[in-house]
């Protein structure tokens, strides 16, 4: 690869998902992150009950993310060949688990609204 620039990466991601879907996903990720930060500021910290529930769901997100990538690419766990493969697998799992956790926590916090007192 001659040059790996942010512009190239964005062009490639636009091709993978389609321009609209890619930017919609970026917007959704930013919106969820901003919403999470907002409830964090509003509640002045993490609330334990939604945190527990979202933590319970994290492994589901992790497994789902790995399963999805392997389904899309017609591959499986037996294809992992070197350390970088395990790091990639872990990164996919963390992204899936972390993403679902963040989404779940934020959704619960928004639905519950601000706790009195």
């Amino acid at each position: 690869m001659k040059e790996l620039t942010l512009e190239t990466m964005i062009a490639v991601f636009e091709e993978i998902f389609g321009t609209l879907l890619f930017w919609a996903m970026v917007a959704a990720a930013i919106a969820i992150t901003l919403a999470f930060l907002w409830v964090l500021l509003r509640d002045r910290g993490l609330e334990s009950r939604p945190l527990v529930w979202s933590a319970v769901l994290a492994p589901v997100g992790a497994v789902a993310a790995v399963w999805f990538v392997q389904w899309v690419t017609a591959s499986g766990l037996a294809d992992l060949g070197g350390p970088i493969d395990w790091i990639v697998l872990l990164a996919i799992a963390v992204a899936g688990g972390g993403g679902l956790m963040l989404l779940c926590y934020t959704a619960q916090a928004l639905i519950r609204g601000r706790r009195a007192g």
Partner: peptide
């Protein structure tokens, strides 16, 4: 090295890179 990541790149990123 025979790697899964190289397969992922071929499967996911190669055609989009070509299109770009």
């Amino acid at each position: 090295e025979e790697l899964w990541i190289s397969w992922l790149m071929k499967e996911i990123a190669l055609k989009p890179t070509y299109n770009a």
